[in-house]
Every structure is written in structure tokens, then in C-alpha cells.
Computed example of a mutant assay.
Amino acid sequence: MTLLEGKNAIVYGAAGRIGTAVATAFAEEGARVFLAGRTRARLDELAERIRAAGGSAETAQVDALDERAVDEHADAVAARGGVDISFNLIAHGDVQGTPLVDMSLADYERPVVTAVRTQFLTARAAARHMIGKRSGVILLFGGAGEPVREFAVGGLQVAFHALEAMRRQLAAELGPHGIRTVTLRTGGIPETLPAGFPGREAIEDSITGKTMLGRAATLADIGAVAAFVASDRARTMTAATVNVSCGALVD
């Protein structure tokens, strides 16, 4: 039996690189994946690939920053058998490469506001349906780390710290209802850097150089770990971070 057989999983930002990897892994492990995002065409392409491989996938155009849209979509998924897994992987709109002293307030605060707003909305929507079933998994991505000296990352680390605080609070309040909340942390995924990204080679070398294994996590690695954490085999894990950094992050 596959890890997520019979589970309904919502993946927000499913058309992105990480979202695609996670949604694909969930489907391979037997979950019915509900692909949510703002670009319907890209979601439909992913759904077709998942179905062609024998998986189950449905798509919906959802702005994960819109309260009503998030709630209505979660309600629709719940009507199809409940919400078992929720993973928000939308982009936070962070600006990197600009020193803080040269950064505008709008660019600095955007990832913080975006991350907190979208995660609150999607976690709340999922939890409202999970409580009745007394089970469910809410996954977060990123995780707070040490300040990065080599590259100016703007408000991104502040956003991650805010999400970690939210994860701890969600775990404390939802745990009695059987709902788990876990963050996946990486030290960076070179595959997510677009071609032509300024300083890409230096960033890739920095990510790999900090690892203990001499290699960085791949998108496939993230998908595989996410599927395991979302499964009942990880039922003892909550209020926790899962280190998927090949040793780049030391807890």
C-alpha cells in the first residue's frame, strides 16, 4: 500500500518548481491531489502529467492571499471526502541581492506580510475541516536559519521566523484535535534557481559547500520527504522541523 492512499491533499502554488515536485510525489504515493494556484494553464499541464502516470489530480484557480477564495476551495475539497493534507508553497515575493540599507520598505515587508497572510488563511481553512475528522497534516516550507552574510536576502528570513512562530502555535492549538503541523527546512535547492539568475553559480557553490554530504537537496528529495511526513508513518511528528538540508543546517 502506498503512503498516502485515500488521502486528499491540497497543494497551493502547485505550478511552481517545489509545488510540482511535492504534488507529483503525493500523487505517486496514492493521494488525490488538488492543485491550487493562480495560473490555470500550468496547473492543468501538471495535472495531465500526473494522470498520465496513473495518479489523481484536479485543478483550481485560487489566489492563496484571498480569504474567500481559499475558504471556498477548501470547502469544495472537503465535500469530496475531506482535507487530509495542506501544503502552502506559493512564492512570497521576496527581493534578494539588495542590501537592507538600500532596500525599500515595500520590498522588505512584502515576503513577511505575504507569508503570514497566506499561511494563516490556508492553515485555518484546512484545520476547520480537519478538526471534525480528528486528523490531518499541515505542512510549511522554509524554516528559519542563521543570518546569511554572503547574499542579501531581504525580509525572507524574517518571514521564515514568523512562519515558525505560527507553526508552533498551530501545533499547540491543533494537536488535541489530532492535527499535526510540521515545517520542512532546506539549506537551499539549486534546481529552483532560474536560468540566468544573477550569481547563480556562486549561490549553487555556496549551498553545496555548506552541506556535510557534499551535495544539496534536490526537488525529488523534497517531494519524497514531504510525502513521508504527510503520511501516517510520521504520525508522531508535530511541532517539529524536518531538516532536508544534507547537513547545511545544524539544529
Rank of each mutant, 00 (worst) to 15 (best):
N8Y: 00
N8I: 05
I10R: 01
A14M: 10
A14W: 04
R17S: 13
R17Q: 14
A21G: 10
V22S: 02
T24R: 01
A25C: 04
F26E: 01
E28P: 02
G30Y: 12
A31K: 03
R32D: 06
V33R: 00
V33Y: 09
G37V: 03
T39W: 02
A41D: 13
L43C: 02
L46I: 08
L46N: 01
A52M: 00
A60D: 01
V62Q: 00
L65V: 05
L65I: 10
L65W: 04
L65M: 12
R68V: 15
E72N: 08
V77P: 02
V77S: 08
A78F: 13
A78N: 04
R80M: 10
G81H: 13
V83A: 06
I85Y: 12
S86F: 03
I90L: 10
A91K: 13
H92A: 13
G93D: 09
Q96E: 00
P99I: 01
P99N: 02
L100C: 05
L100V: 06
D102H: 07
D102L: 08
M103Q: 07
D107K: 08
D107W: 01
Y108K: 09
E109A: 11
E109G: 05
V112H: 07
V113T: 12
T114E: 03
A115F: 11
L121S: 06
L121A: 02
A126F: 14
A126K: 12
A127T: 08
I131F: 12
L140W: 06
L140T: 09
F141A: 12
G142W: 10
E150F: 08
V153N: 06
V153H: 01
Q157W: 05
H161I: 14
A162V: 11
R168I: 04
L170R: 08
P176R: 10
P176V: 15
T181W: 12
G188M: 06
P190C: 08
E191D: 11
P198C: 05
G199F: 08
I203Q: 05
D205P: 01
G209D: 06
M212C: 09
A217E: 02
A217Q: 06
A224H: 08
F228S: 00
S231R: 00
R235V: 03
R235A: 00
T238I: 14
N243Q: 14
